[in-house]
Design a protein around this nucleic acid. Structure first.
Lengths: 159, 159
DNA sequence: GGCAAGCTGTTGAGAGCTCAAACAATCAGT
DNA sequence: ACTGATTGTTTGAGCTCTCAACAGCTTGCC
């Protein structure tokens, strides 16, 4: 029940520029991918995960875990990808509750078509504007933030 | 027309952890604000901008600029905020094309109610997990990314 | 004055997300 | 086996965002 520790001007600026840069970068990449390949970044990441899996296929639950997606969100997304002909679904043979998503040939082709533009944009707007030291710092910073969230998530704390 | 410069394993890890940390932090704060105060972060930011403006009111176009929002998005958002009774709109007196959004007393009260929890969450998950040196680095990194995007936006370049 | 061009903001359709609810298959305990 | 809890996934409603199209006002120029 202690007093709120408000942000001073400097802290507000850091907070604001951090969120702005990340959001604008996400938005830029999403527009690029939609325009050039007709898919949002979230769908691209699903296809990438599938393409790297053995047999280009994976259980829905495992896929959701890798993509940091809720089961519901993944279910909707895979339904859309199925409609586009990029993914197919079939019942798991070992556990009849489960479904296995598989990348189709058309899906793999779409991914091969989309990847160069996407990777080029990431390199241009992230790796080309930061020094090696800054990249290492960014990794450590991001890990600290992520671990802080993760810990709080597992231990239902104050916020 | 040169070859694509793919990301190596280390670069992929940095890219991935950066996006994940920022997205998870955003999602965490959005859930907190929705749960405790019934508004998404995007709406909270609109209310903050208005609360700091003279007369707690501002032209829609200026507000969109400050919130880094498209005119359309802001228009939808303010319509929702008006429905909630937190914002009111009236025609500009100087330019009859324009509208002025104003924070209502109920909107100011909602903001006062929401701010402590939000700021506490930001402090807990950002400022409390990073050292002063990391915060300064994060500011510089974010500025570099943002300026890189901004420049590319004004000069229609490769991506 | 009159007209084209530009600015300001809204609207509607559609896409993707979240949340809560549902449902079927499995597991653990008796 | 039977029952209840748990797991894996889907579904539907509602919300917010994007994009493209539109409408009203203003400005500059003849």
């Amino acid at each position: 029940m202690s007093e709120v520790r408000w942000l001073n001007a400097e802290e507000q600026e850091i907070w604001r520029i951090y969120m702005t840069a990340c959001n604008e970068l996400s938005a830029h990449l999403d527009r690029q991918l939609r325009r050039d390949s007709g898919m949002p970044v979230a769908y691209y990441e699903i296809l990438v995960c599938l393409s790297e899996a053995p047999g280009r296929s994976m259980r829905m639950s495992r896929l959701a875990e890798l993509c940091r997606s809720s089961p519901s969100r993944l279910s909707h997304a895979v339904a859309a990808l199925e409609k586009a002909g990029w993914v197919s679904r079939c019942l798991s043979e070992t556990d009849r509750r489960g479904w296995v998503a598989q990348l189709t040939d058309a899906g793999f082709a779409a991914l091969e078509n989309a990847a160069p533009g996407h990777v080029t944009a990431v390199r241009e707007h992230l790796f080309d504007v930061l020094s090696p030291g800054q990249l290492e710092a960014l990794r450590e910073i991001s890990q600290a933030i992520f671990e802080g969230l993760d810990k709080a998530g597992r231990t239902p704390g104050p916020s």
